[in-house]
Design a protein around this nucleic acid. Structure first.
Ligand code: MN
Ligand code: MN
Ligand code: ZN
Ligand code: ZN
Lengths: 140, 140
DNA sequence: ACTTAGTTTAGAACTATTATAAAGTAGATA
DNA sequence: TATCTACTTTATAATAGTTCTAAACTAAGT
C-alpha cells in the first residue's frame, strides 16, 4: 500500500495504539471519525452507510465493527445506549452529559451540570464516572 | 376462567388500565411483577425464564413482550438500556437514579442526588426528566 | 349459551451484532 | 526487491433480542 502523507499521522497513531495495523480501510474510518471540527454521535450502521455511500469498493460490516470496537477499547470512543437496542458511539471522550430528544442526542458540557449532593459508592467499589441524561419533550 | 379472589384486584386493575383484558397469563405476569416488597429490574428474557421455570404449561414469548410493553406504555414500568443492546425494565416508576456495576443495576433514591446547576432546555423543548447513572468499578 | 373482539401461541421474520474461514495484505526479513 | 507470515478483509453464516403473522382459543357482553 502507498505510504500516507503524514497529515493523517494522528489518525494512524490512534489505530496503532489501539493495537490495529493502519490498513487502507481503517485509516479511512479513523480519519472519517476524528478529522472534524466537532465531535459527534453515531451507530455502526450509520457510519457504514455514510462512508460507503461515496465509495465504489465498499468496506465490509465486519471491518466497521472491528475497528469501532478496538477504538472504543483503547478509549478513543465512548459507547452508550438509547432505548432502541442499538449501540451508539461518541467521539467526544471527555466526561460530559446528554440531552436525549426523541432519538436525537445533544452534548452537555461537563461544567453545565454540578452536584450539590452525590451518594457514596457501595463498599469495595469506587465511582468510575457520573453521567446525566436529560430527556426532553416538546413544549405543550 | 375462574374469577380471581379480589386480593389480586390491584394487579388486574393495572392490566385493565393498560388496555388489556385480565387473562390468566397476564394476571400471573402482573402479579409476579408487582406483588413484592421491593421493586426490581429485569429483562423480558429473565422474566420469561423465571416465570416459566415453575410452570408446566409455558407462557409464550409474545405474551411476555406484549404484556410488558402495554404495562410500560401505561406507565407501570420504566425502560432503560445498558450497553448490551437489551431492554431492561424497572418496576420502580418513581424518578430515581442508578448505579451500574458490571451489568448489575442498583437504585439510588431520588433525594440522594441533588443538583447545584442544571442547563436550560433548548428552546421549544422542556425537560421531561433528569436521570443520573453512576458507573462503578472495583477498588484497586 | 352464543357471539365476537380480543388473546395466545408457535413459528417465521427482522435487526443488530458476532463468528467463521478463505483470500488478500502489511510489514518484517533476506 | 522477493519472500514470508501473522494479521486483515470480506462474504456469509450464526446468534440474540425482538416483532410479526395467522390460526386456534377465550373473556365477557348479550
Ligand atoms: Mn459492541
Ligand atoms: Mn421494546
Ligand atoms: Zn456526547
Ligand atoms: Zn431502578
Amino acid at each position: 500500500m502507498q505510504k500516507m502523507n503524514n497529515k493523517n499521522q494522528i489518525f494512524i497513531d490512534k489505530l496503532r495504539s489501539s493495537g490495529l495495523r493502519p490498513t487502507k480501510q481503517r485509516v479511512e474510518i479513523s480519519t472519517f471519525l476524528f478529522k472534524r471540527k466537532k465531535t459527534f454521535h453515531f451507530t455502526v450502521e450509520e457510519l457504514k452507510n455514510s462512508m460507503n455511500l461515496k465509495r465504489s469498493k465498499k468496506i465490509s460490516t465486519a471491518t466497521f465493527y472491528n475497528t469501532v470496537h478496538a477504538l472504543k477499547s483503547a478509549g478513543y470512543l465512548k459507547e452508550f445506549s438509547l432505548e432502541n437496542n442499538t449501540s451508539y458511539y461518541d467521539t467526544n471522550i471527555s466526561s460530559h452529559h446528554h440531552f436525549f430528544d426523541n432519538g436525537k442526542v445533544i452534548d452537555i458540557k461537563s461544567d453545565k451540570i454540578t452536584f450539590k449532593k452525590l451518594p457514596e459508592a457501595p463498599k469495595g467499589k469506587k465511582i468510575k464516572n457520573v453521567e446525566v441524561v436529560i430527556r426532553l419533550e416538546n413544549n405543550n
